[in-house]
Nucleic acid binder design. Structure first.
Lengths: 206, 206
DNA sequence: TGGCAAAGTTCTCTTGATGTTCTATAATCA
DNA sequence: TGATTATAGAACATCAAGAGAACTTTGCCA
């Protein structure tokens, strides 16, 4: 998915981030980035970053400090428009963005959405009654919002990524497994971060 | 190819854009293009570009800066080497070969074998405990022999095609559903014809 | 636990660059 | 010569980008 046309300045900033983000000991604050870019207005920079976030090039930083991170997305090099990155295992105990240099996997257009997607390999039986088995590949649309009833990749306390059905009530978020031997888990909303929504699934038998 | 309504100058500019648009680091401004074309009036250039837009050769640039882009006219030449025929529904009550003019569906290489394959859409819940749900697509390798334990497309009495796990004993063939509310079916070997073996499975959630 | 400073977010305003429109004039061609 | 096309240039409209202030949220620390 080629992002909606970036302005030239946005391309420049994106390029700068790709080349210099690792130079900082921590992800920089907006003020530090302003300094590095020669800007003097935090608000202006924020607007540009916002555009990059909407284009799917930068991770959404929901009020987090030093939250500027690039989206891992080696865009398939032309022609291979059906290949998506395999980021690793779901329910493997760490945030998905941690995985680098992902393997690429072909995904038919019918199994993905028009938005940026990625692939995870399922570990465990927590969704077995939905027909999602250990070892399956799931296609995830990258977004941070989901509706009730959707199956999402949820990051709890920034540490553990799991695949569960989402139910957001007033004051709490419930993650429902699809396995009668497992209980639903209840969290306060700020502990749960949606990283994507299930749009497809694949399995191989040989 | 080029509509005859274009004037000569418009054809020249169109030709120039096709050859040199990629030379610019970003799409050029009208002033930059004027410079490259040896013009000195932005307004004149704009009028010519306008004509190309109306001819459908250039994307409309609604007040966008650096918005000059050529219309993509290349349709992919239908050479989908990864597409497999969708023959219809499994458990639909008739031999698979009966379906003509199948729809084609993209299947990633990982989900198919090197042998000829085809795709079926699953009807019913007979394999639900294997994670194969109603509406799923299954990728079938076309062969008439199978080993014990493989999931096969089996044609019984030449009439009904079903997806089941195969068990061939001495003197009989047992077809095992994966649904505790359904019983295994026993047939004499000559009544059962294997039409293919399950090698992949896909599901969409949107 | 509550306050405070730091950092993210939102907003308005300004400015220069850039796209758009218009008119007048020159060039080209039948 | 008359009509069409091409160009120049001015005037206008719009937008990207930045500055800076005000507001909100976060995270730290006593």
């Amino acid at each position: 998915m080629v992002p909606p046309t970036l302005t030239r300045r946005q391309q420049e900033i994106h390029e700068y981030l790709r080349e210099h983000l690792d130079d900082f000991p921590h992800p920089p604050t907006l003020d530090e980035l302003c300094d590095a870019l020669g800007l003097s207005s935090r608000g202006s920079l924020h607007k540009q970053i916002q555009a990059l976030i909407e284009a799917g090039l930068v991770e959404p930083m929901n009020n987090l400090r030093r939250g500027i991170r690039l989206v891992e997305e080696d865009m398939p090099p032309m022609g291979d428009s059906d290949a998506l990155p395999l980021y690793g295992y779901i329910a493997a105990g760490r945030p998905i963005e941690a995985i680098r240099n992902p393997e690429m996997i072909d995904v038919p257009a019918q199994l993905r959405s028009s938005k940026p997607c990625y692939v995870l390999e399922v570990r465990g039986d927590s969704m077995i009654e939905e027909g999602i088995l250990d070892g399956d590949w799931v296609v995830i649309e990258h977004r941070d919002q989901a509706r009730n009833g959707e199956i999402v990749v949820a990051l709890v306390d920034g540490e553990e990524a799991t695949l569960k059905r989402l139910e957001a009530k007033s004051g709490e978020v419930v993650l429902h497994p699809a396995n009668s031997s497992l209980a639903a888990m209840h969290y306060s909303p700020e502990r749960v971060q949606v990283q994507g929504v299930l749009v497809g699934q694949m399995r191989r038998y040989h």
